[in-house]
Amino acid sequence: MNGSRTQILAKVRAALAVPNDPHVRHGDTAEAHMIRSGDRVAAMRQWLPLVGPSHEDRKAVFAECSAKLKTRFEVVDSPAAAHAIIAAIAKEEGWQSVAAHATGLVDAACAALGLPVVLASAGYDKDALAACAGGITGCLALVAQTGSVFVTPNSAGGRALSVIPPHHIVLATRAQLISDLPAAWEMLQAAGELPSFASLITGPSRTGDIERILVLGAHGPKKLTVILVED
């Protein structure tokens, strides 16, 4: 059962049999040529916000974006230092349980925290997940250009874990800090079969729907903490 597939496609083909009006379709700009025949990704990189070539450049842009987005961005030189930051947050916010998924950096952080863990990767109970004040995940990458955390089901424990708990803490390694959006999508495609879900998380959940006043934590996390472990 696919509805009016044949009719719609026939209408689309018939419509396009009449060529575009040249007064409207301006295909002769330099940019249009770059998109059509050149290296389109290289072209986009000349237009999008600039990120320098070194790791330090990427860190600087990510930090700058984070400040604007109200993401807390911490760079530490060991997992132990990351654990200390998480422990301080959990204490301050009075966490009773923590949501997480089974992966290297996150496992160690949860073990260090010593709170009951709701493992999203083990087929979780919705209400138990919703009761967690914090969630700790890994990520596929951090994108410097926009200050985004790039998550997929395998790298960040599925679809719900990174959006249900009010405080989302992300752990990333030095190599995971990448430069820009084209690199993020390239990375996803290079990893083989595409997942059913991927998301660029850019700051804590937000809304300005009421009188244009920014409110964090509209539906997703009210707080986002990104910890880059440099060792």
């Binding site: 985004s148 089901p153 599925g158 679809r159 059913s196 998380i201």
Partner: peptide, 16 residues
């Protein structure tokens, strides 16, 4: 804040 892609139901090996 969120730019996500969705391609089908949960795949084998995915959590939710």
């Amino acid at each position: 804040c969120y730019n996500s892609i969705y391609g089908g139901p949960k795949k084998p090996g995915e959590t939710d």
